[in-house]
Design a protein around this nucleic acid. Structure first.
Length: 819
RNA sequence: GCGGGUGUGGUGGAAUGGCAGACACAACAGACUUAAAAUCUGUCGGGGUUUCCCCGUGCCGGUUCGAGUCCGGCUACCCGCACCA
């Protein structure tokens, strides 16, 4: 009977053109409406979309469209995290300039996004590789520099040989490069750092603000990454020398148990200590061997602890005892002071080390038994062998001993963080040049602001090993010093691309007057982002960096809040047969194929329906078929009722039983879908609620009130619109409606429609369901109780037993407790 | 080792402490059809003496009139951190 078949390609192209031509998705600024910022992490323009992209965008689009219909001004932008190494590697292999391949990729992917019917305000699109954008990335770099948050230092840094560039700590995963999985090695280089450690405390405490809005595990991961420890720094004298050494410890209460002191092999003091020592050569050989070890070998708990005596002795700050100074591989150079006091009796690592090298093990906290220690005792207890502190609880001694040290000026309470400064230099081409100049007489000088951006030169030699590509362009390198006018050299490193993505969400809100990176008023108006949707893989990296940027920009007076993302939705992966889709596994399902075969609406509905957003989604071709079947079912539902849907003077009369039931189903669906999308962000159950309504409409008896049916159909189409915008727009038009569905007001459910005249009670005996009885909704507790007990079924089961208690939950159940 | 999360039919998944398995997928049966597809209808956790009853949400225990849900312990898997003193 249906002449007019559902052809997704036609319907989708039609509506995409209409929306584009009418700027349907431009951001509104109605002062009477609340403002809502819905943001999905912008993609790297890799070439084409994968299913993971389709999933994030589908989720974001449902939220954005729902909020618009729900009476909000919605900012829903899209852009490109466009700098990065793949484009540069592609250039090396195929000779295509990154600027060309990147823009080609962007054009292709933008087109794919449009095919998905995503409601972006394209007028705000940005790409981080555009000079108009990276000018401001450079501006922000200089802001950091002016505020003492960008500095250069020579350090042993993480070097990825495959990418031939350095990496930040966060970008080293299990000793391997986050991007290419090559083993990372240490290299001594002078590099630029951002002083994120200055913000460690605030990055930690502000996590509290995010409770509730962020997944607990992301908060935990950040907390662990920042890794705050409270303890003390204690200064030891060195026997026969003027120098001192300072250790960091979380256990100053065990100070009397120190039997040796250990330095990291890299510690500068080591070289002084071994000068003139007979065993210096051996020590040096040891240091070299440790430094050769990879990051994995060095930091794994499985690695055997090895060390060597330096020939020098430290002086115990309270007892004056001589303590041998060792160096060992288990002491890290860049945590705490790079120097540890060894308390073998109460620290597992020290115990292992002391046992191996036969160093004294002196218990100073009563382990509760007389036997010799076979392992470190790390529990709590009372102090022993600790002079005047004997008998004191160790928790109390912890502060008391620090007090004594403080009075003597040889110790202080302090905290230590695991977070390290952010290494931001990259020896690569396709990134924002660091806007600094090195002058032989003036030192490091910023490029004057009016000369920004420092443009990337087009012609460079990409493939020279061990050289930043920018170094190969003489014209770029040679410049004059802004301060003295003399010949000077530019910085030839570019910035970590995570810097580009640390502020892009601000740029979307407004470009401002050209004196700063974004419009402060607009940014304050829209931010913090109300819903940020992205992958869990950024739990530390991007999310930590962006939080850091926001705090710095706040301190500089550029924004008036301290956290950028109020609420975070981390979507799970799209997997096939339990494995992440990847080219190498050959298990990739391409979005193009799905869109071509079924249309974007089907892809969206399937993805939203198949799993809750934060869980991994198992791809299922049959599931896609099911989603498509559902849309066809909706199509036929409308098509077969055009006459009653077009009669707009048709009044609904829900007085009959069937009509009353359908009206209830309609309003229950409105309630459920509104809550699921608007507050629970559980799109799978929202879709299932719409399916239930559609099923109820199909089951509606012939001849029952048509107006009620029309209302139900119209509602189902509206509720489905955020998930499947094209087909619903077409159906809306087929119904003879002239309004824009996307601009329609979201329906409000009628509480009274949900109230039933009669309620079914479950009657339990000792918690087991034995009977179901229907009562009028106004029946009192007493009536329900007595009638439930009086019922035939219950009476039969009560024979020979006595009623101990009866619980009545109004509107729900009766539980008769018998003995 | 530490921290976090998850365990429910053949599958994806539903269930403010109140009828476990909504909604789908798959499977099976039927209707329509010459036939198929599409569509529609029905069955669909296990077992039994089958109008009814018993068992069942990883395992053991607890709280409660009532536990998938709360508490304690265990176990398996996943994720993060991992010699951070």
């Amino acid at each position: 009977m249906s002449e007019h078949r559902y052809v997704p390609s036609e319907v989708e192209a039609k509506w995409q053109e209409k929306w584009e031509a009418s700027n349907a998705h431009d951001t509104t600024h109605d002062p009477n409406k609340p403002f809502y910022y819905c943001l999905e992490q912008f993609p790297y323009p890799s070439g084409r979309l994968h299913m993971g992209h389709v999933r994030v965008y589908s989720i974001g689009d449902v939220v954005a469209r729902f909020k618009k219909m729900h009476g909000h001004n919605v900012l829903h932008p899209m852009g490109w995290d466009a700098f990065g190494m793949p484009a540069e590697n592609f250039a090396i292999q195929h000779g295509v300039h990154p600027n060309v391949s990147t823009h080609d990729n962007i054009a292709f992917m933008r087109n794919q996004q449009k095919q998905l019917g995503l409601s972006y305000d394209w007028s705000r699109e940005l790409a981080t590789c555009d000079p108009d954008y990276y000018k401001w990335t450079q501006w922000i770099f200089q802001l950091f520099y002016e505020r003492g948050l960008a500095y250069k230092k020579k350090a042993a840094v993480n070097w990825c040989p495959e990418c031939s560039t350095v990496l930040a700590n966060e970008q080293v995963i299990d000793g391997e490069c986050w991007r290419c999985d090559s083993e990372v090695v240490k290299k001594d280089l002078e590099q630029w750092f951002f002083k994120i450690t200055d913000y460690a405390d605030r990055l930690l405490t502000d996590l509290e603000q995010l409770q509730g809005g962020w997944p607990e595990r992301v908060i935990t991961m950040q907390r662990n990454w920042i890794g705050k420890s409270t303890g003390a720094e204690i200064t030891y004298g060195i026997h026969g020398r003027d120098e001192t050494l300072t250790v960091f410890t979380t256990r100053p209460d065990t100070l009397y148990g120190v039997s040796y002191v250990v330095l990291a092999p890299e510690n500068e003091l080591v070289q002084k200590l071994i000068e003139g020592y007979a065993g210096a050569a051996e020590v040096q050989a040891f240091i070299d061997s440790v430094r050769k070890a990879s990051e994995i070998e060095r930091t794994s708990t499985d690695t055997e602890k090895v060390g060597i005596f330096t020939g020098s002795y430290a002086v115990h700050p309270l007892t004056g005892e001589k303590l041998p100074i060792w160096i060992a591989n288990y002491v890290l150079p860049d945590y705490g002071t790079g120097c540890v006091m060894g308390v073998p009796a109460h620290d597992e690592r020290d115990f292992e080390f002391a046992t191996k090298y036969q160093l004294p093990i002196v218990p100073v906290i009563d382990p509760g038994h007389q036997d010799a220690l076979t392992e470190a005792f790390t529990g709590e207890g009372r102090l022993i062998n600790s002079a005047e502190f004997n008998g004191m609880a160790n928790t109390e001694a912890l502060t008391k001993i620090v007090e004594v040290l403080e009075q003597k000026g040889i110790g202080k309470a302090t905290t230590s963080f695991r977070l390290r400064d952010w290494l931001i230099s990259r020896q690569r081409y396709w990134g924002a040049p660091i806007p600094m100049i090195n002058c032989p007489s003036c030192g490091t000088v910023p490029v004057p602001k009016d000369q920004l951006p420092v443009l990337l030169p087009e012609h460079v030699d990409f493939g020279v090993k061990g050289k930043s590509p920018l170094e190969t362009n003489d014209e770029f390198v040679h410049t004059t010093c802004p301060s003295c006018g003399g010949a000077a050299r530019r910085e030839t490193d570019t910035m970590d691309t995570f810097i580009d993505s640390s502020w892009y969400y601000l740029r979307y809100t407004g470009k401002g007057d050209g004196t700063q990176p974004f419009d402060t008023e607009a940014a304050n108006n829209w931010l913090p982002v109300d819903k940020y949707v992205g992958g869990i893989e950024h739990a530390i990296l991007h999310l930590l960096y962006s939080r850091f940027f926001t705090k710095v920009l706040h301190d500089a007076g550029l924004v008036n809040y301290t956290e950028p993302f109020e609420s975070l939705l981390t979507q799970g992966m799209v997997v096939l047969n339990g494995a992440k889709m990847s080219k190498s596994k050959g298990n990739v399902v391409s979005p193009e194929d799905i869109i071509n075969k079924y249309g974007a609406d089907t892809a969206r509905v399937f993805i939203l329906f198949a799993a809750p957003p934060d869980r991994d989604l198992e791809w299922s071709d049959q599931g896609v078929e099911g989603a498509h079947r559902f849309l066809n079912r909706v199509w036929r539902m409308v098509e077969n009722h055009i006459p009653i849907l077009r009669k707009n003077n048709l009044k609904a009369d829900a007085s009959g039983d069937a009509a009353k039931k359908l009206r209830m189903a309609t309003h229950a669906a409105i309630k459920k879908v509104t809550e699921d999308i608007g507050t629970r962000y559980q799109f799978n159950t929202a879709i299932s609620a719409i399916m239930e309504l559609v099923n109820a409409i199909y089951a509606y008896p012939e001849g029952a009130d048509a107006g009620t049916k029309a209302e139900a159909i119209r509602t189902a189409v509206i509720l489905l619109h955020p998930a499947a915008p094209h087909i619903t727009s077409e159906l809306w038009e087929m119904m003879g409606e002239t309004s824009k569905l996307y601009a329609l007001e979201w329906p409000v459910y009628d509480e009274s429609a949900l109230a039933m005249d009669e309620v079914e009670y479950v009657v339990q005996i000792n918690g087991k369901v034995r009977e179901r009885l229907v009562f009028p909704k106004e029946a009192t507790k007493e009536e329900v109780e007595s009638q439930a007990i009086a019922s035939e079924k219950v009476q039969a089961l009560l024979e020979g037993k006595s009623i101990k208690k009866v619980i009545v939950v109004p509107g729900k159940l009766v539980n008769v407790v018998v003995g």
